[in-house]
Amino acid sequence: MNDAAAIHLDFKLFILAIALLSLFYLGIWFLAFNRSGSAKGREKEKWFVPVVGLDSSKKSFFHHWDVRLKIASLFSYCLLISMISEAIMALFALLISLGAVLLAKTPFSRLLRRMTAMTGFLSMFILILPFSAVQKPGDQLIFIDPFTLAFNLRGLQLALTIVFKAAAIAMMMEPLFNTAPLPATVQGMQRLGVPAVICQMALMAHRYIFVFLHEAKRMNTGMRLRGFRKRTDMETLRVLGNFVGMLLIRSVDRTERVYQAMLARGYDGTFPTHDTFQATGRDWLLGFFWPGIALLLLLLDSKY
């Protein structure tokens, strides 16, 4: 551990820190699940797909912004933010994104859902990196006395940077995708160079998710009525395998009917759209604002 600054920590303090951390996670867990409450509610929660691109009645400048510029601007903001390497700058990015969400007036519950979806993956970094980060000269280490484990503060900082950046980018998804109907957003992506085929398929796949979700829910209800309960055993896996198989058979059959219906309505490989785009000076100004602020953060980040 050469030049690394070492601090020795009492075991009791370590336990206290762990307790505080678990309390924090319990809080997040409670926030995420208190709406569904019981175990039955959680079972339902797993068959839930949030709707994206639902225009809220509350309009903001994000809603009036030219979709092409909005996508280009916010996506470059996200890419630039992902290059930040200091925790404090990442925290600033997080606050800026939070500001954007507040300005966009998208429902807070959706934001919370996004944040909780990431906790599992991100907590892995918080829990592992402080102990696994390679010890370099100048690192501050905290030793927890009865063990030989060293808690590396640089590792913790690294983990926090990742968490803040991930949250900052995820938050930006709200103004990016929830301030215009999804077809308009996808149309904008197409104008920016995403192949038309991919855009078309994304819209179709999105539409049929809710059709198959309905089907899956009905099948699930039927299975529960016939007494099926999930357990950790072979029988459960066999039944779930059949469930997936049944869902696939029904969907393949449906693809044929969907395609025939599309042909009957004059489908020729393209979706007609009526969206027209018009970018005003204000749109361009906004378009430069977000990457600009991200660039500023990056500049400060490299100077730090």
């Binding site: 398929m201 179709m204 999105h206 198959f212 997936v244 869902l247 489908y267």
Partner: peptide, 13 residues
């Protein structure tokens, strides 16, 4: 279009 519909099925599965 059929691949798109299958994608939704896998999404739900």
């Amino acid at each position: 279009p059929k691949t798109a519909v299958m994608t939704s099925a896998f999404f739900v599965a």
